[in-house]
Design a protein around this nucleic acid. Structure first.
Length: 288
DNA sequence: ACGATACCCTGATGGC
DNA sequence: TGCCATCAGGGTATCG
């Protein structure tokens, strides 16, 4: 998936295409990836039990209001209109939002026709993603976004400190926990830990003040740099214009287990930390 | 509070 | 060519 830099790249390309537009028609092709107000558990989670025919109220990202902004918190995108409901998109592992493909791609789940004739689509082969509708920006904030940690792109030392302090779990698992830090996934967790020379298995609560400060700085830095590269395309990630990213060429550790450390030439170690494949340099990132 | 596990899906890849 | 196991950028529920 799409971690923060990929989602931000989607947000930016999407913003250029849809702000000022209104939706003429919505088509839901796969009900289970959609969560509407009133659905059981319509918050974080998708509804899997739906089998009734798709009849959407006109309030579901349809007409009337023009789209005013496309926002992002962590790995989530919100398409906002001033009065009508807000649509939240979570890309999951393989989700993408595309505008104006020549024809409808395989695994298209939701389709929005815009008033300028363009077509925006939510495409997601693995269906781990989600499209949700919220009555307003305020309620999106209240019910969903307030549950997320500070955005990784701008996270400050004090905020990361708050996420770590008193916690008896690995720093890697803290970084991956969206309620503690929003936007970091498996790639950028490893990259930021390498850049700040912190071992992923270290106890988050035992990091020194200096280390937390360095880590916060490197998280921001790696996010900024990756956004400039349009994100990382490992297999199928594309922004809303269909372009791949190229930050994967700059990965120092992710996907490089068994290769040599770019700093000290030691063989990079790869094993499971927090149930995810994790790569680090055993020399640069000492375990203490 | 935390780790581990199972689960939600499809597709790519490598071994046989 | 086919079959099978394994792996993948995410996230939730449940259990100990």
């Amino acid at each position: 998936m799409p971690e923060l830099p990929e989602v931000e790249s989607v947000r930016r390309t999407l913003e250029n295409r849809v702000v000022g537009r209104s939706v003429v028609r919505v088509r839901v092709l796969t009900r289970p990836v959609v969560s509407l107000p009133g659905d059981p558990a319509s918050g974080f989670t998708r509804t899997r039990t739906q089998s009734e025919p798709v009849r959407l109220r006109s309030s579901f990202l349809l007409a009337r209001d023009h789209i005013t902004t496309v926002e992002r918190l962590g790995k989530q995108i919100a398409i906002v209109r001033s009065r009508a409901p807000v649509v939240r998109i979570q890309l999951g592992m393989t989700g993408s939002v595309r505008v104006d493909d020549a024809q409808r791609p395989k695994h298209t789940h939701v389709e929005w026709e815009l008033d300028d004739g363009a077509c925006m689509r939510f495409v997601d082969p693995r269906r781990f993603g989600l499209v949700a509708s919220h009555p307003s920006r305020e309620l999106l904030q209240q019910h969903v976004w307030s549950m997320l940690g500070p955005d990784a792109l701008t996270i400050r030392h004090a905020e990361l400190k708050r996420a770590c302090v008193g916690r008896k779990r690995s720093i890697k698992s803290v970084l991956l926990d969206q309620t503690l830090v929003a936007g970091v996934g498996n790639i950028y967790a490893d990259e930021a830990l390498f850049a700040s020379k912190i071992n992923p298995t270290r106890d988050a609560g035992l990091l020194t003040d200096l280390e937390v400060r360095a880590l916060a700085r490197e998280i921001r830095s790696v996010m900024r740099t990756a956004i400039k590269s349009g994100g990382s395309t490992i297999r199928d990630y594309r922004n809303a214009d269909g372009n791949a990213g190229f930050f994967q060429q700059k990965h120092k550790v992710y996907g490089r287990g068994g290769d040599l450390c770019t700093r000290c030439q030691t063989t990079l170690q790869s094993s499971q930390v927090a149930q995810r494949t994790t790569v680090w340099c055993p020399r640069c990132q000492m375990s203490r």
